[in-house]
Computed example of a mutant assay.
Amino acid sequence: EVDGRSIWVGNVDYGATLKGMNKHFEQCGLIKSTKILRDKYSGKPKGFAYIEFLDVVSIKLALKLNESLFCGRQIKVTAKRTNIHGLSTTDRKPRGRGIRSRG
């Protein structure tokens, strides 16, 4: 349910603040929470954020801000997707030791 009311914002300036992010998206509807993700070791911003709105309708309005300028950078806005354990979006082969034939 939370993912259905949330967006992912990419290409966020490292100097961006929660207050500034909320101000940029306040026109879309009431914001429940905003998270600018940071590296757990260095504490530096990763360059993306999640915003949860109180209403699903706000998502459609927020998606219209895709490629808008925020802190001098063109941001990417998409609907937040739900992570499904074990589902990969890449076609990488599994790593590690497998059974090898000795022909």
Results as ranks from 00 to 15, higher is better:
residue 17 T to D: 08
residue 17 T to C: 08
residue 19 K to T: 06
residue 20 G to I: 09
residue 20 G to F: 14
residue 21 M to F: 07
residue 21 M to Y: 05
residue 21 M to L: 15
residue 21 M to K: 04
residue 22 N to G: 14
residue 23 K to Y: 03
residue 24 H to D: 14
residue 24 H to K: 14
residue 28 C to T: 05
residue 28 C to L: 04
residue 28 C to I: 03
residue 29 G to Y: 01
residue 30 L to W: 06
residue 31 I to L: 09
residue 31 I to N: 01
residue 32 K to D: 05
residue 32 K to T: 04
residue 33 S to I: 05
residue 33 S to W: 10
residue 33 S to M: 15
residue 35 K to P: 01
residue 36 I to L: 10
residue 36 I to T: 05
residue 36 I to A: 06
residue 36 I to R: 07
residue 37 L to E: 05
residue 37 L to D: 01
residue 37 L to S: 06
residue 38 R to E: 01
residue 38 R to N: 00
residue 38 R to L: 03
residue 39 D to G: 00
residue 39 D to P: 06
residue 40 K to D: 02
residue 41 Y to C: 00
residue 41 Y to G: 00
residue 41 Y to L: 01
residue 42 S to R: 05
residue 42 S to Q: 03
residue 42 S to F: 06
residue 42 S to D: 07
residue 43 G to E: 07
residue 43 G to S: 07
residue 44 K to G: 04
residue 44 K to S: 08
residue 45 P to Q: 02
residue 46 K to C: 10
residue 48 F to Q: 02
residue 48 F to N: 02
residue 48 F to Y: 09
residue 48 F to C: 01
residue 49 A to L: 00
residue 49 A to D: 00
residue 51 I to E: 05
residue 51 I to T: 03
residue 52 E to N: 03
residue 52 E to K: 06
residue 53 F to R: 00
residue 55 D to H: 00
residue 55 D to E: 00
residue 56 V to W: 05
residue 56 V to A: 04
residue 56 V to R: 08
residue 56 V to C: 03
residue 56 V to K: 09
residue 56 V to P: 02
residue 57 V to H: 13
residue 57 V to A: 14
residue 58 S to W: 03
residue 59 I to G: 02
residue 60 K to S: 13
residue 60 K to A: 13
residue 60 K to I: 02
residue 61 L to R: 07
residue 61 L to G: 02
residue 61 L to F: 10
residue 61 L to C: 03
residue 63 L to T: 04
residue 63 L to D: 04
residue 63 L to Q: 04
residue 64 K to P: 09
residue 64 K to F: 13
residue 65 L to T: 13
residue 65 L to P: 08
residue 67 E to F: 08
residue 67 E to Q: 09
residue 67 E to S: 08
residue 68 S to Q: 09
residue 70 F to Y: 12
residue 70 F to E: 11
residue 70 F to K: 12
residue 70 F to A: 11
residue 71 C to Y: 12
residue 71 C to L: 10
residue 72 G to T: 08
residue 72 G to D: 11
residue 73 R to N: 11
residue 73 R to K: 12
residue 74 Q to A: 11
residue 76 K to F: 07
residue 76 K to I: 15
residue 76 K to E: 15
residue 76 K to R: 15
residue 76 K to M: 14
residue 77 V to A: 15
residue 77 V to E: 07
residue 77 V to K: 15
residue 78 T to W: 11
residue 79 A to T: 04
residue 80 K to W: 15
residue 80 K to R: 15
residue 81 R to A: 08
residue 82 T to K: 15
residue 82 T to W: 09
residue 83 N to A: 12
residue 83 N to P: 05
residue 84 I to T: 04
residue 85 H to L: 09
residue 85 H to E: 11
residue 85 H to G: 06
residue 85 H to K: 10
residue 85 H to T: 10
residue 87 L to D: 12
residue 88 S to Y: 14
residue 88 S to I: 11
residue 89 T to W: 09
residue 89 T to Y: 10
residue 91 D to R: 14
residue 91 D to G: 14
residue 92 R to S: 13
residue 92 R to A: 11
residue 93 K to S: 10
residue 94 P to G: 09
residue 95 R to A: 00
